[in-house]
């Protein structure tokens, strides 16, 4: 498989993971540092099922995603009730715990040595199809009531609740969607690299996904995809810079976040029916961010 195709497949897998982060962190404002752990669950469970238990590949992927959803339900149910800043800590703890389990259950996972000998079943065509399907699913969610509810909860959870939205229930669904997409990306990645190790699924990976979302624009699906693509390809583009490329990479991100706080795309969406049909007038990318929203927490100002 040629270099471009390999980079392309890695990028496609990254985008699928980032789509989950887009919904969860970009739209709903929940910072999860455990998303990569779900990717790890997807990777390990599918690889184990195929290599050790000889389950057919498609079934193994489905089972791995279902497994991650089960774990996600438990984690989401227990952590989404707590305050949002603690949620980031709780998911961080969860992610590192998952990694510890991968390291410790040497008999099944190979521990720190990694799990080798996974057959290469993720073809470029499969990766492309998976990417299109994932983008389509997330796009549909984005433009349904769920997409609106995400934004509403992020902006003002109390106001959303008063309008009849069960914020906890909604967050749990979104968390599961993110977990499922991550696990799916993980399964694809295991059967592409043919090797998995716990070090691939640390919290820094989750953080990178969050950076990709903010880089492209937290409110824009186009931006999230663009962010994931650019930042996946960037390290490859910067290869000529040798050991300086990590510094350059960070500098570019810093500049973007500093000078375009709403991300490259703001709320702009690519649309096939007329270029910016979805962009509301007077709200150019990056501008028109919240201006006059009244201060929060004043519900009992009169108490």
């Amino acid at each position: 498989m040629s270099y471009f195709v390999t980079v392309g497949v890695f990028t496609a897998i990254t985008i699928i993971g980032v789509l989950g982060t887009f919904i969860l962190t970009g739209l709903t404002g929940l910072f999860s540092l455990g998303q990569a752990a779900f990717m790890g669950l997807g990777a390990y469970v599918s690889a184990l099922l195929v290599v050790t238990f000889h389950v057919p590949f498609p079934l193994a992927v489905v089972l791995a995603v279902l497994f991650a959803l089960g774990v996600g339900y438990f984690i989401g149910y227990t952590t989404l009730k707590i305050r949002q800043d603690f949620f980031a800590l709780a998911t961080f703890g969860f992610g590192e715990a998952v990694r510890a389990v991968m390291n410790e259950s040497v008999k099944w996972t190979g521990g720190a040595m990694g799990f080798a000998g996974v057959p290469q079943l993720t073809t470029p065509w499969l990766a492309a199809a998976a990417l299109i399907a994932a983008v389509w699913l997330v796009r549909n969610v984005r433009y349904s009531k769920f997409g609106r509810d995400c934004l509403a909860i992020r902006t003002d959870e109390l106001a959303a609740e008063v309008m009849g939205i069960n914020a906890f229930d909604h967050k749990l669904k979104v968390f599961l969607l993110g977990a499922g997409l991550s696990a799916f990306a993980g399964a694809l990645s295991a059967f592409f690299t043919t090797y998995v190790e716990p070090a691939m699924f640390g919290w820094t990976q989750s953080a990178v996904w969050i950076i990709m979302v903010f880089f492209g624009g937290r409110d824009s699906l186009t931006g999230a995809i663009f962010g994931a693509t650019t930042l996946s390809a960037l390290p490859e583009v910067l290869r000529f810079a040798s050991q300086w490329r990590v510094a350059i990479y960070c500098l570019i991100i810093l500049l973007i976040i500093n000078f375009r706080p709403a991300g490259l795309f703001g709320r702009w969406e690519l649309s096939f029916k007329g270029l910016s049909r979805r962009r509301p007038p007077g709200a150019g990318a990056g501008k028109g961010r919240r201006k006059a929203v009244a201060e929060k927490g004043g519900a009992d100002a009169d108490a």
Binding site: Y3, F10, V246
Partner: peptide
Amino acid sequence: ISYDTKSDVNEAINAYNRLIDQ
């Protein structure tokens, strides 16, 4: 031609492919 892998296995795979294809 030296390529950095920053302790990331996927980077090593990309670097190897690039060294050969490009």
